[in-house]
Amino acid sequence: MSNLQVSVYRYNPETDSAPYMQEFQVDTKGRDLMVLDVLHLMKEQDSGLAYRRSCREGVCGSDGMNMNGKNGLACITPLSDVVKNNKLILRPLPGLPVIRDMVVDMGLFYKQYERIQPYLQNDTPAPAIERLQSPEERDKLDGLYECILCACCSTSCPSFWWNPDKFVGPAGLLQSYRFLADSRDTATRERLTSLEDPFSVFRCRGIMNCVAVCPKGLNPTRAIGKIREMLLADAT
């Protein structure tokens, strides 16, 4: 088999007036590498190629990117999952400002995460040991707390593209529900009040791109549905 054809988004603000796609030929030696491995091989050809990476095992959330049109983590996406006709197109996560090449400015994404007060709030005095929580109560956090903040979901969401400053987005809302669902959290009322406006939650149109791309198999749309139910119940 011939070399893999990779087309990658390049932009260096110091030297490029506009972004462009650069072609690379990568010799994979016939192996079904992860996309991140391919990026490493490309960086050996051009050390200037910039991308984020850390754990290389799908838990740190550094290397979210758009691979042949779909968001995902480069480190746990094997070529066999994405490559078509021996061609791989790599672009930064859509909708966020590009700092350089594959590196986007995650500021807006983090801001929406911070906005939902992503920490346990409990106004009762802490006991000398842990707060008790039944396994059934704890089960409610499964599918929520595992979020790695890779931004694959929010940057695949048209509602977030449109209103990244006002719509919390799937990642932030998943975490919002993680705390609403926690039997130990007592700030339910305040959390819901802060989400009541027409944008924060209700801009979700149920497109479900978030569910389709989440590399951890989480379901932000379901969590958003639960928040809507709580808001509606709260209003009646």
């Binding site: 920490y119 346990l120 409990n122 802490a126 040991i129 842990e130 707060r131 008790l132 929580q133 039944s134 396994p135 109560e137 704890r138 956090l141 707390y145 705390f179 926690d182 130990r184 959290d185």
Partner: peptide, 14 residues
């Protein structure tokens, strides 16, 4: 735990 770490639990809640 008080900060919110979602530990797994035994039946007695610990």
């Amino acid at each position: 735990e008080h900060m919110g770490l979602p530990f797994s639990r035994f039946d007695n809640g610990r």
